[in-house]
């Protein structure tokens, strides 16, 4: 009887601490991504901001992706932005920069790439403006370009 009670109490306390730990972990991840954004961008580069609640996705994803150069998005390990979403193809899309203007193009994905809910034809380069919403698989990003806004 004594042992059972002790064990029950122990489990109880453990659950509470697991909860605290998971909260701290999420907050920590939150801060880290913000710091990353603050320390790297200085507002000079545009970036992709995750719109989804990150906790609702069960794969690794950052809160922001800084676009310093052209980059590819996909499940493939060679991609610049790797997202292990099962609904994202191994080479899904690419962001290209021409004369300071950013474009996105679908590089042959299965489930398609959407900008502001419009599907992109494969190979078509969409000129990105500040505030565009990009959706790939389950993930939704916001394209933020502070310079163009100003």
């Amino acid at each position: 009887m004594g042992i059972i009670t002790l064990l029950m109490n122990f489990v109880f306390v453990l659950v509470i601490y697991c909860f605290i730990f998971s909260i701290i972990r999420l907050i920590y991840m939150d801060i880290k991504s913000i710091n990353y954004y603050i320390s790297n961008s200085n507002g000079k580069h545009p970036y992709l901001k995750l719109i989804n609640q990150r906790e609702m996705l069960n794969f690794r994803i950052e809160e922001t992706y800084l676009l310093t150069k052209e980059c590819s998005i996909g499940r493939d390990a060679k991609s610049d932005i790797i997202i292990k979403d099962p609904f994202i193809s191994s080479q899904h899309a690419q962001i290209v920069k021409k004369e300071g203007i950013y474009y996105i193009k679908d590089t042959g994905s299965k489930n398609g790439t959407f900008v502001n809910d419009n599907p992109l034809k494969i190979g078509f380069e969409w000129r990105l403006n500040n505030g565009d919403k990009i959706r790939l698989g389950q993930v939704e990003f916001l394209f933020v370009d502070i310079l163009s806004k100003a």
Binding site: V15, C18, F19, S22
Partner: peptide, 11 residues
């Protein structure tokens, strides 16, 4: 185990 809400339910 990563979702805090699950711990609340469990508790």
């Amino acid at each position: 185990y990563r979702k805090p809400i699950n711990y609340i339910i469990l508790l």
